[in-house]
């Protein structure tokens, strides 16, 4: 597209420049959410905060939807390589949390600190199995996509999303159970670490599911971009691998 435009511009002295309004819309949404946090937590204006948050929701979700609708399949074929770089950055976020956790734990006089209830053993294993299977199913989906089998692709994709949702549901159950027992993020330094690391991981599951959802609707209409799905599944594998660190460090150490 741009080659034609550039040539055009050259001859007619009048250019058509590509534009997209979705980045702007998403950014304004992020601004609204940032303000909502300040309004609620710093200025205790909860009503205003709610409004700001409410403004942010349609902007961000609408922006993402509009963006995927506009860009899906239009040659962002380098996304796979780019996701590698992005994952490097993401991995560093987890590294920082783990570094904090190791440092704190190794210098603590006794562990776990007072107030920590015993954590379940079987339950996290089940969660691990669920998440690992979802990695396998997304891989299957990808295989079918490469074979051109569209309905099988959608089936495996939906299965993956179901597994992801199950995992999230299990996390939420686990959290509410522990909070019920009086173990919260503010209980002690382990509570702080436990909830922030599992929460951080959970938020990545949510983002992964969000990416799947964004691609699902075009896919249902038959618009399947192989670079999109390769990239999305790479991200999902990453989320899965990180879970091994979470589960081994937080539950079983």
């Amino acid at each position: 597209m741009s080659e034609h435009d550039a040539a055009h511009a050259h001859h007619a002295g009048h250019a058509h420049w590509d534009t997209s309004i979705w980045p702007a819309i998403i950014s304004v949404g992020i601004l609204a959410w940032s303000l909502a946090f300040s309004l609620h937590f710093v200025y205790h204006q909860s009503f205003m905060a709610l409004i700001a948050f409410g403004i942010g929701i349609p902007l961000i979700f609408g922006g993402v939807a509009g963006w995927t609708g506009e860009a899906m399949g239009t040659g962002e074929g380098l996304a796979y390589g780019a996701m590698g770089w992005f994952i490097l950055a993401e991995a560093m976020i987890f590294m920082s949390f783990f570094a904090y956790y190791w440092y704190m734990r190794l210098s603590a006089p006794s562990w776990p600190p007072a107030g920590t209830p015993p954590l379940p053993v079987v339950y996290p294993i089940v969660m691990t199995i669920v998440l690992v299977s979802s990695s396998i199913t997304i891989h299957m989906a990808e295989e079918h996509m490469h074979d051109g089998n569209r309905s099988a692709f959608t089936r495996w994709l939906l299965l993956t999303m179901a597994l992801g949702l199950t995992f999230l549901g299990m996390s939420i159950y686990e959290w509410s159970h522990l909070i019920h027992e009086g173990f919260t993020i503010a209980t002690n330094s382990f509570g702080t670490v436990f909830y922030s690391i599992t929460g951080l991981h959970g938020s990545h599951v949510i983002v992964g599911l969000g990416i799947f959802t964004a691609g699902l609707f075009p896919a249902l209409k038959g618009k399947i971009s192989s670079s999109f799905w390769r990239t999305a599944s790479l991200y999902w594998h990453f989320v899965d691998i990180i879970w091994f660190f979470v589960v081994s460090q937080v539950y079983f150490w």
């Binding site: 976020i93 904090y100 704190m104």
Partner: peptide, 27 residues
């Protein structure tokens, strides 16, 4: 990402009641 984490932790400590940097609770 490390910086992002660091500044997020101070807001969590200040507004969400966590104890990352609070020595009385093991931080």
């Amino acid at each position: 990402p490390v910086l992002g984490t660091a500044v997020t932790l101070i807001s969590m400590d200040k507004y969400l009641g966590t104890h990352f940097f609070d020595p009385t609770q093991g931080g």
